[in-house]
């Protein structure tokens, strides 16, 4: 059962999560435990990695225009930094007393804090990346909203020329995101909606073309062709809105686990 919702986050956190769980179990089973080895060096390596993450994190916050990311990332960075101080304390305490129970507790708390803080940080970053994809999806929706003003062939050519690159970009980004997800149901939902969008795009262009032709000929059937065009636009918008909804899902469908 996947715990992390993207393969990238899973590849980063899964190994450390396993080690921390193992340590917690060993700690509980061993009660007082053996003498701890000198952990000063590995703790120092963690501290250096934390210092780097804090620097890179605040650099990202400073240059980002995403207000939610600016709000979400600092608490996660603080969490990681505070956890690293717990590890430093634990290391100092264990050097003085390799059997110290409070030091072992601090070691576990610190490791858990690093895991949770890094997880929160990666989640904040990931959500920010998702918001970028959603912005692209919304730009397609905005573009689809102007379909109704296309009433001559010249407009249609321009419409197709402008819509194609945005749609291609959206399809590429959603496709990449789908491949990143660990949750099978969400992946399938994205694949289905994306395929529907791809299938409906030529149908839309054809529907607009028929509407424009019918209108320019002054013949009957304008209302019907307009209705058909609007129906296809609505279908496309529904699928894109569904993509936006699924992109924001991070919880797991309980039914799948049953």
């Amino acid at each position: 059962m996947p715990v992390f919702h993207t393969k990238t986050i899973e590849s980063i956190l899964e190994p450390v999560a396993q080690q921390v769980s193992r340590l917690v179990i060993l700690h509980e089973e061993a009660e007082d435990g053996n003498a701890m080895p000198d952990l000063a060096r590995p703790v120092q390596v963690v501290k250096m990695a934390v210092d780097n993450l804090v620097k890179v994190g605040y650099d990202t916050v400073n240059v980002s225009e995403d207000q939610i990311l600016k709000q979400d990332m600092p608490p996660a960075l603080q969490r990681v930094e505070e956890a690293s101080f717990l590890l430093l304390d634990a290391s100092d305490m264990l050097r003085a007393d390799p059997y110290s129970a409070p030091a072992r507790k601090k070691l576990i708390e610190g490791s858990r804090g690093i895991l949770q803080g890094t997880s929160a940080l990666l989640l904040a970053f990931d959500e920010s990346e998702v918001r970028k994809i959603i912005r692209i999806c919304k730009s397609v929706l905005e573009y689809l909203a102007i379909t109704e003003v296309v009433d001559c062939m010249e407009d249609l050519v321009k419409f197709v020329k402008n819509l194609s690159p945005v749609l291609t970009k959206m399809a590429k980004e959603v496709d990449l995101r789908e491949k990143e997800l660990t949750h099978q149901v969400h992946r399938e939902m994205l694949v289905r909606s994306l395929e529907e969008v791809k299938a409906l795009t030529p149908v839309l262009i054809s529907a607009v073309k028929i509407f424009v032709s019918t209108k320019s000929q002054g013949a009957g059937g304008v209302k019907e062709s307009q209705g058909n065009r609007d129906f296809v636009v609505r279908k496309l918008c529904d699928e894109i809105n569904e993509i936006i909804r699924v992109l924001q899902l991070t919880t797991y469908d309980e039914d799948e686990w049953e």
């Binding site: 190994p15 340590l23 435990g33 003498a35 590995p42 934390v50 780097n52 490791s111």
Partner: peptide, 29 residues
């Protein structure tokens, strides 16, 4: 990308630390 790399480094360093601590405990279990 830099964020991901930095997080990867922390995770690897923490896993190594916890493994070192866990090995000492395991000997007793």
């Amino acid at each position: 990308e830099q964020i991901l790399e930095a997080a990867r480094s922390i995770a690897a360093a923490t896993a190594a630390l916890v493994k070192a601590a866990g090995t000492a405990q395991k000997e007793l279990v």
